[in-house]
């Protein structure tokens, strides 16, 4: 396969996986666990692409994720995009300060992003929406953040597998790879 097909298949692999994961979050989780807060299943992908890819690649994936998952929510598209870009920026900010390799790093970034997500959502809602969030679900948000951090650990290996299959260079130490 040519490198172009490999790049495309890498994007496609992550996209399909994320759609499957977010559908699982909305549907399968409901069947099994009812209305217990579910992990934000697109956030591990966003975190992975924020920390183990070049900025423009991560940014592109951020847009793809927003477009592919917006159908599962009633949130306005612009707000969701804004929120995800903020999360992406937060991940980059952390990456600049702290970096190590491996699944635990993805876990950390996913956890931080998913905890920051409801805060950003609340703030942006008050800034941009005509009917802002009046009663934020703080406990639910925290539980979702915790679950997101937990699921990102096994997901790291799935993401790495996609990278291996599509011949994408696996993440190495910061500054020594082409992800900077």
């Amino acid at each position: 396969m040519t490198s172009r097909y490999l790049i495309l298949s890498n994007y496609f692999g992550f996209l399909v996986l994320t759609i499957a994961l977010t559908s699982l979050q909305c549907s399968l989780w409901l069947q099994f666990f009812g209305y217990i807060p579910s992990p934000y299943m697109w956030i591990p992908t966003l975190a992975y692409w924020s920390i183990f890819r070049r900025v423009h690649e991560g940014l592109f994936m951020c847009y793809i994720l927003v477009i592919s998952t917006i159908a599962l929510s009633s949130i306005p598209l612009s707000l969701f995009l804004f929120l995800n870009l903020l999360c992406f920026a937060l991940a980059l900010l952390i990456k600049q300060r702290i970096y190590w390799n491996g699944p635990t790093y993805l876990m950390l970034i996913s956890g931080v992003i998913s905890l920051a997500f409801p805060i950003f959502h609340f703030l942006l809602s008050w800034m941009l929406e005509s009917k802002p969030i009046s009663d934020p679900e703080i406990l639910d948000g925290m539980l979702s953040g915790l679950f997101t951090a937990l699921v990102s650990l096994p997901l790291y290996y799935v993401f790495s597998k996609i990278d291996t299959l599509t011949h994408k260079e696996l993440p190495t130490e910061a500054g020594t790879s082409n992800y900077e």
Binding site: C26, S73, S74
Partner: peptide
């Protein structure tokens, strides 16, 4: 068959 992706939206 499903619920909203986000906590603060009730669909």
């Amino acid at each position: 068959i499903g619920k909203d992706l986000l906590i603060d939206h009730n669909t």
